[in-house]
Amino acid sequence: MNDLFIYSVLTLSGIGAVAASILFVASKKFKVFEDPKIDEVEEELPSANCGACGFPGCRGFAEAIVNNPDDFDSFNCPVGGNDVMKKVAAIMGKEATEKEPTIAVLKCNGSRQNAPQKIIYSGEQNCALSHSMFSGESGCPSGCLGLGDCVDVCNFGALYIDEETWLPVVDEEKCTSCGACVNVCPRGLFEIMPRGKDNKRIYVACMNTQKGAAAKKNCKVACIGCMKCTKVYETDSVKVTNFCSYISPDVDVENYGSAIIASCPTKAILGVNVEEQKV
């Protein structure tokens, strides 16, 4: 009995020793060099694996940064923001350029109150499907369908559907501007835009391309392409194409923001932390 015990231990130890030496030799001989910086960089990243940087996951992003140190400025992790990029820059021995923080905005204000429901959709509660069927419950072919594909796709819990308006709401604290909602919305209603100086920004909450009269029929707050906003701020930053105004983020919100908002007869221009000018 004792012999059996000793032989088993010896045989197993022998196999173990041989296998260990094979593994040792293999690990030395077939070693693939991997920059230790990749691990270090990955450590600093938020591990959201959201793809907002344009790479497949945080590991892919870390590899890309380490392998292309010369293009450091072209890389950005919008989720981690400036803090993370500073730490990554320190590892890489580079200087991080400060990037303006951004946020996703919904460019539609067609709530149940503003764009009343005319048709009832009873199919599967999904925007992409509903979009393929018809123009929407309010009749607006560009408006928000309110079925929450964006909510489903948000990795950060930064979106929810407001029960009263039936519109998705972006949580300013949680939104990392990863762009998942921009890609999933069948009507392309989200835009990633800078949060603005002192978190003040204005935007046109409408993307319809119908003529004014037709748009008004479906929604009280539709942009009717009246050009009034372009008169207040006469540069290319505010322009009307296809009967719909677009205000680019470089507009001077501090001085003209409230005037631009006030100029809109249908209240299609919304401001965040910008008061409407009292006339």
């Binding site: 199919g123 599967e124 992409a128 499907l129 393929s132």
Partner: peptide, 13 residues
């Protein structure tokens, strides 16, 4: 189950 709805959605994607 809304099977055809889901199939249509799958085809779109």
């Amino acid at each position: 189950l809304p099977l055809v709805d889901l199939i249509k959605l799958g085809k779109i994607e």
